[in-house]
């Protein structure tokens, strides 16, 4: 049995998907463990909100990596975990928004927060664009929407940019981490730019 056939065996692909699901759960598990052991320091609400936001952002970037990985390796399983990663990103984003409202804002000052704080507006815009993508992520929706589905899901690019703006806008002085994330996003977008017009995304659209 050659290497390729082993990699494409249903059992192996299933194991890979489980592994990815486990990895994507790590931020949540770590957070639960830290809350249980009370090791989040004196301002746990801030910690929880921040780490959920970062987890959402990292998973969004991971989602964007799947197509290039498929293209470079020729291994179809990358695409089979893409939706799951996207939904994990959405899941963390929902928790992040709830944590922000509960722990940071205390559900007060809502209107002023969204109108006067541009970084929160950027985060909100990013989150709101994510909602239709999560809602239309089922195979059924993919079939029903056809070409429109692909167009809609290109929103993931502005979503990533808005999320990045949301982060870098908050930094008080050291922008190093966000510069690195920005470079990664830039490379991922540049790849799409280079491939646009090619058949890069088509296998997935057939769904």
């Amino acid at each position: 049995m050659n290497e390729k056939r082993v990699l494409n065996q249903p059992g192996f692909v299933l194991a890979f998907r489980l592994l990815v699901a486990l990895l994507a759960s790590v931020p949540l598990l770590v957070l639960i463990a830290s809350i249980a052991s009370q090791s989040l320091g004196p301002d746990p609400g801030q910690e929880v909100t921040e780490s959920l936001g970062i987890a959402a952002f990292q998973l969004l970037i991971a989602t964007l990596c799947m197509t290039p990985l498929k293209r470079w390796t020729g291994w179809g399983a990358w695409i089979r975990v893409r939706r799951m990663l996207g939904l994990f990103a959405f899941f963390y984003a929902v928790l992040h928004v709830l944590a922000f409202l509960q722990f940071i804002l205390g559900w007060s000052d809502l209107w002023a927060t969204f109108t006067k704080r541009p970084y929160i507006l950027a985060g909100a815009v990013s989150f709101l664009m994510l909602v239709p993508l999560a809602l239309t992520s089922t195979k059924g929706m993919m079939r029903r929407m056809g070409r429109q589905w692909k167009g809609l899901h290109k929103l993931v690019y502005p979503i990533a940019i808005a999320a990045w703006v949301h982060f870098i806008w908050q930094s008080r002085s050291d922008v190093g981490e966000m510069v690195v994330y920005g470079l990664i996003i830039a490379v991922l977008l540049a790849l799409r730019w280079k491939w646009s017009g090619s058949r890069a995304l088509i296998p997935f659209v057939r769904g």
């Binding site: 809350i35 301002d43 609400g45 007060s108 000052d109 927060t113 704080r117």
Partner: peptide, 13 residues
């Protein structure tokens, strides 16, 4: 951000 309120530490979840 607003300066109207503050979180006095330690603050609980």
């Amino acid at each position: 951000w607003s300066q109207k309120r503050e979180r006095r530490l330690p603050s609980g979840l």
